[in-house]
Amino acid sequence: MRRRLLPALLVTAALAGCGGQAGTADGKFEIVTAFYPLQFLSERIGGDVVSVTNLTKPGAEPHDIELTPRQVGDVAEAKLAVYIKGFQPAVDEAVAQEAKDRSFDAASVVTLLPAGGEDDHGHEHEEAGHGEDPHVWLDPVRFSTIAGKLGERLAEADPEHAAGYRERAQALVAELGTLNTEFADSLKTCERRELVTSHTAFAYLASRYDLHQVGISGIDPEAEPSPQRLAAVAQEARETGTTTIFFETLVSPAVAETIAREVGAKTAVLDPLEGLVDAQGDYLGVMRQNLATLKTGLGCS
């Protein structure tokens, strides 16, 4: 990754000059975000006084993106880079090189869960021991904490508009509180609490609402699960009477469909919100669609 990124970094002097000092032509405060959920936060909290550039294009899988020279230039020019350290190596390196003092690491303001580990049946996840799980945005409570902290960070970086940032951040915190209540109430009583997913993106959601995530693949959705892991997941699905195997929007559903056929279950889309597929939707709408999918798949009353 370092060899791929360094040539891009060499051009940033020409692209950015003394990085972070330039504004947009209309004078807006420039923010660069690593992927969609952070774009959503930045746009909602920033309002019409910011310009937001997202490094992960719609429909792209964000885990292993590579940055173009122009995107590295965007990081260098931005007045604030919003990212989750440890999720996207190329973004981590660009921020460290070009925007270290003009960055907001969303993972630094909440408590993270470990990646991997063992499930309740002693099945070892393949990524066990490899750092922390970055998917914090799937927990509305943690996400609301990030929203409040980002509002403060923007107020500090752009004091002229501080009151507006804080006001919009608190409004979003209230909306996320309502979303949390909807999830908690809707998932309180369900026939099943096992959440069998194509990859382990939903640990925060499962932990918050007392569900048990069973991931076919690990944190990286592109990683191929071993035959042993496939057999273990199929066995657990049978033992728990699982009726729905959930797969995500940005990767192939083939493995989830294979497990579903083997255990006689249905499949349904559960969106990890790593990228926005429907340009007409937003974080809140997709999360509510996820809730409806969970209620059906888990038999919640």
Score class of each variant (00 low, 15 high):
residue 120 D to W: 11
residue 193 R to G: 05
residue 165 Y to I: 10
residue 163 A to N: 13
residue 143 F to L: 12
residue 122 G to C: 13
residue 173 V to Q: 10
residue 182 E to T: 01
residue 186 S to Y: 05
residue 191 E to M: 08
residue 188 K to R: 13
residue 133 D to R: 04
residue 213 Q to E: 15
residue 202 F to A: 01
residue 165 Y to A: 05
residue 130 H to N: 11
residue 137 W to V: 03
residue 188 K to I: 03
residue 184 A to Q: 11
residue 200 T to D: 06
residue 214 V to W: 04
residue 129 G to E: 11
residue 188 K to Q: 13
residue 129 G to S: 09
residue 126 E to G: 11
residue 179 L to M: 03
residue 145 T to A: 12
residue 180 N to K: 02
residue 130 H to Y: 04
residue 187 L to A: 04
residue 141 V to D: 07
residue 131 G to N: 03
residue 179 L to H: 04
residue 149 K to M: 10
residue 204 Y to I: 04
residue 163 A to G: 15
residue 214 V to A: 02
residue 172 L to E: 07
residue 178 T to V: 12
residue 216 I to E: 00
residue 172 L to A: 05
residue 205 L to E: 03
residue 193 R to A: 08
residue 153 R to E: 14
residue 208 R to F: 02
residue 152 E to V: 06
residue 184 A to L: 07
residue 181 T to F: 00
residue 190 C to E: 05
residue 176 L to Q: 05
residue 153 R to G: 00
residue 133 D to G: 02
residue 157 A to P: 02
residue 153 R to F: 00
residue 211 L to C: 01
residue 184 A to P: 06
residue 211 L to I: 04
residue 150 L to M: 07
residue 210 D to N: 14
residue 164 G to C: 10
residue 172 L to M: 14
residue 146 I to D: 00
residue 121 H to W: 14
residue 225 P to T: 06
residue 161 H to W: 07
residue 161 H to G: 06
residue 155 A to K: 07
residue 189 T to I: 03
residue 175 E to M: 09
residue 165 Y to L: 08
residue 175 E to F: 00
residue 173 V to D: 10
residue 125 H to Y: 14
residue 189 T to H: 14
residue 160 E to K: 07
residue 210 D to M: 04
residue 215 G to A: 01
residue 146 I to N: 09
residue 166 R to L: 15
residue 183 F to T: 07
residue 155 A to F: 11
residue 167 E to K: 15
residue 122 G to A: 11
residue 137 W to F: 06
residue 216 I to A: 02
residue 221 P to E: 05
residue 134 P to Y: 02
residue 139 D to K: 02
